[in-house]
Structures are given as C-alpha cells and as structure tokens.
Amino acid sequence: MSTIPELVLCIPGPWGGSSVLADEIALSAIGYSLAGNVLRDSETGFACELVLQRADSDLADDFRKAGPHWATTIAMADIEDHRSVAYLVGPGGSREAADAMMRAGAALVDSGGLGVKVDSTGIAHAPAYWIDMCEQLDQLTAHRALVVYVAGAEVYSCGMHNFGLPEAITSGGDKTQAADMLRFFTRYLLEHAPQFEDGHTFSVSEGKPVYRVERTEAIDYGDGSLFNNPYGAWRLVPLVPEKKGNWWTRKR
C-alpha cells in the first residue's frame, strides 16, 4: 500500500504554550522530549509531529459525543477547563506504529493531558483508562483503543487502518451480536494475520453462526477524512448453518 494513513490523537491539556508543555514532558514523560513540533522517544527513536493549538470551546462536546461511556464523569468535566489542545500526528499502517502512537499519547497524559480522542477513529478515552491500556499493549489493548463499531443499515468497524488492515462489514440479525462478532473478527485479523480469500468462511467458535468472507470496498467517509481505510474491507455474509468445522475454513 503506497499511502500510509495518518493516526491522529487529540489531547486537551492545561498547558499555556509550547515551552510549558516541553517542560512538563521533560519532567513527567520519562524518555520523551519535545523539540519544536517533534515529540521524540529517546529510547526507541520513534518521533511524531505535535501541533499545539488554543483551547477549543466545542472540544468538550466533541469528547462527550466520542466518549459517551464516560461522559458524566469528573474526568470529562475537567476538559471544560483545558487551555490548549495538542494534536499528535504520526503514521498508522502497522501494529508497531499504532503502539508507538499510543505510548506517545500516554506521554502527554503523564504531562497533564486530560483525555485522548482518536481523530482517525472517532472514539475518546479517559486519561486513566488510556494509561491502563498503554501498560497492557502486549495484550492487544490498542485494538480496544483504536477501533469502533457502528450500527446503522449495516454494522461495520472503523479504525483498522491504524494497523494497516481492512475493516469488517456485515448486515442482518441482531446489531449487538453483529458488533460483537466483528470485534472478534477484527481482533483475530490483528492477532493472527490469517490469509483470507474470497469464499473462505469464518465463525467465532464451533456451533456459532458461519459467515462467508468476501473482499469489498471500505466505507467512504468523503475526501480527506481520517476515517477512510485504504486497505478496503471484508464483508461477512451469514450462511445457513451447515456441518461443524474449524473457526474458519477454506471453501471446498
């Protein structure tokens, strides 16, 4: 894939300017430094762009919409008092890049950040939860942090491009169950890198519904949208129950 998608994190904070933020990072974020608009991890050499902007009066509402699961918490209320907004911009396209960007986000949270909104996915996380996920990246917590599931006329994932992988789409049946199945499927893609082809079948486990896997286009969110996935998508088509088999089997 010639075009690597950007992974963008939005982190509001109490910082009065870039020099204040740089000082906080030097004091609080072990191993990280901010020089100009580059945030760097001295241990790994990873670097991403940091753009600091003025406070945004609409940002608290944006966070509540993207993080309804913590909308009524004190942590969410704290965002009302932010003085500036840091945007971390770096490459997606692989698990390693996604993990590195998550750790960079944690460096800003350690330096006073009030939460993290994944602008390339559309989900927001409380600061303590973000740190907790970053401490468990070996357990694929980045998948939980960076991928969401949308239920409309169809049910589909958004955010797998952060790992360089296709999205997943399905239709019909119970929306909650469909989202749970797609969550399992997309994590399976990330963890095991299976070599699916059109016509292969997939099931969460023996005795569960079976789906035929077909390659398709990803949802088009419009030109320039950070949600767009250049890697396409897998459509999971429900099949009539048939004889038991493995989690996924090749078409015979």
Rank of each mutant, 00 (worst) to 15 (best):
S2C: 11
T3S: 15
T3N: 15
I4P: 03
P5C: 05
E6L: 10
L7E: 09
P12E: 04
P14D: 08
G16W: 05
S18A: 13
S19R: 15
V20W: 11
D23P: 02
D23K: 07
L27S: 15
A29D: 05
I30E: 15
I30G: 14
G31C: 03
L39T: 01
R40H: 10
D41I: 03
T44S: 14
L52H: 00
R54K: 13
R54D: 14
D56N: 10
D56S: 07
D58I: 06
D58G: 10
D58F: 11
D61I: 10
D62A: 10
R64A: 07
A66Q: 05
P68R: 08
W70V: 09
A71C: 09
T72I: 07
I74L: 09
I74S: 09
D78P: 08
I79H: 00
I79R: 06
E80Y: 12
R83C: 15
L88V: 01
V89D: 09
P91L: 13
G92H: 07
G93R: 01
S94P: 02
A97I: 04
A98M: 03
M101D: 02
G105H: 03
G105E: 07
A106L: 06
L108D: 00
V109Q: 04
L114G: 02
G122F: 01
G122R: 00
I123P: 02
W130I: 04
C134T: 05
C134Q: 00
E135R: 15
L137H: 05
L140N: 07
A142W: 03
H143W: 08
R144S: 15
R144G: 11
R144Q: 15
V147Y: 00
Y149P: 02
G152L: 04
A153W: 09
E154L: 12
S157L: 03
C158N: 10
M160L: 08
H161S: 07
H161G: 04
P166T: 01
A168G: 09
G172S: 08
G172A: 12
D174A: 01
D174H: 06
Q177R: 13
A178Q: 04
D180M: 14
M181I: 11
L182R: 01
L182D: 07
R183M: 15
R183N: 11
F184M: 15
F184I: 15
F185H: 04
R187Q: 14
E191Y: 08
H192A: 14
P194V: 05
Q195N: 13
F196I: 05
S203N: 01
S203A: 12
P209F: 00
E217H: 08
E217S: 14
A218H: 02
D223R: 11
D223F: 12
D223K: 14
F227D: 05
N228S: 01
P230S: 03
V237H: 10
P241G: 08
P241W: 03
P241F: 03
E242Y: 11
K243M: 13
K243F: 12
K244C: 11
R252N: 11
R252W: 14
